[in-house]
Simulated assay, not measured.
Amino acid sequence: MYDDYDDYDDYGGREAAGASSWYGDRRPDREEVVHLCPECRDLMGAVVGYARSLPEPRREPDWSRALRWLDSVCGGRDAVLGLDTVPLADDGLELPDGLPPGHRQRLESCLVLLDATARQFFDEETGIALRRGLVRLHERAPGVVTGTRSASLLTLGVVWAVGHANGQLFPRGVVTEKELKPYLNATQGGSTIGAKVRDALAGPFGWSPVDRPWSYGGQSRDLLPLGHADLLVSSVRRQLLGVRERALAAQVREEVA
């Protein structure tokens, strides 16, 4: 079944004659060379030739990329289609019963700090989003809540994640971590614990920055995708609605064409 005529030592001559190489520009090691029977070699050549004749994969339309991005920001297509611009309302958030004393103490301390931070740097609606983010973090990853060194550092992490999800922190927003750290008496930056908060909250809709639909949404593309529409303030959801409507209109035009 091996090709007795396919001499390894003649490889350089065949390459010089213009034969294609599986190994790029380098000469294969002797143990890498497989000698094929003529029939197998012809079959492989036909497969390679057919693969090279196929057209380039169709580029994903901008509207499709925009909708995928919205999925990651809002938490799925149903959440995207259900977006509204109603301001977040204080729904009387209460901590669940039966919490271990250490968990309750940490959450209560963070809630106080989040309220104070919202009053100092943001607004009431952002305060609601921050409190919801903390409680949801505890539901999904209580170890992040109790394992963080201090309540002030955990608060900074929640503000980092939810704040970037709403575009309220630098570079898109005007509030900087340099202002937040001394206010919260935090001893380290917010990005480390903030990344843990983000990973715990983020939904299953993955997103890579290189996939961003640059032609859609203006500054809204700078939002940190958490996948929770109810952690987004109304001004941000209004921008996302604009992206959604533009993407859906482009989808309809393409399907009709």
Rank of each mutant, 00 (worst) to 15 (best):
A129C: 07
D123G: 13
W207N: 06
V252L: 13
G189S: 14
L231W: 10
A249W: 01
F121A: 07
G206S: 14
A161H: 04
H35L: 09
C37T: 10
C74Q: 01
V162R: 06
G127S: 10
A250H: 12
S53N: 05
S235I: 02
G203N: 04
V145A: 03
H138E: 06
V175T: 12
P57R: 08
P96W: 10
P171D: 09
R119W: 03
G190P: 07
G92F: 13
D9C: 05
V162G: 05
R27G: 11
Y5D: 14
G92Q: 10
L153R: 13
L240A: 01
G92D: 08
M44S: 09
L241R: 15
D62Q: 11
A165N: 08
G190T: 11
F121S: 05
Q168G: 10
T176P: 01
R26D: 15
L240R: 00
A186Q: 04
P55M: 02
E56P: 00
R132L: 11
Y2M: 13
A141P: 04
L180T: 07
V158P: 01
V197S: 05
D71C: 10
G12W: 10
D71Q: 04
P96H: 09
Y8D: 15
R41F: 07
Y8A: 11
K196Q: 15
L240W: 00
Y50D: 12
D84L: 02
S53F: 00
D71P: 03
V210W: 09
G194H: 08
G13E: 13
G217V: 02
R132W: 07
R106Q: 09
E139H: 14
G76I: 01
L36R: 10
G167W: 04
G227P: 00
D115H: 15
H164V: 02
R221S: 12
P142C: 04
D91I: 05
E139C: 14
V197K: 05
V145S: 01
D230P: 00
D9T: 08
A118R: 10
R131M: 03
G190M: 11
L88R: 00
S235P: 00
R253P: 01
V174N: 04
A51I: 05
V159L: 03
A200S: 11
A202F: 07
V159M: 02
P101W: 08
P213D: 10
D222M: 15
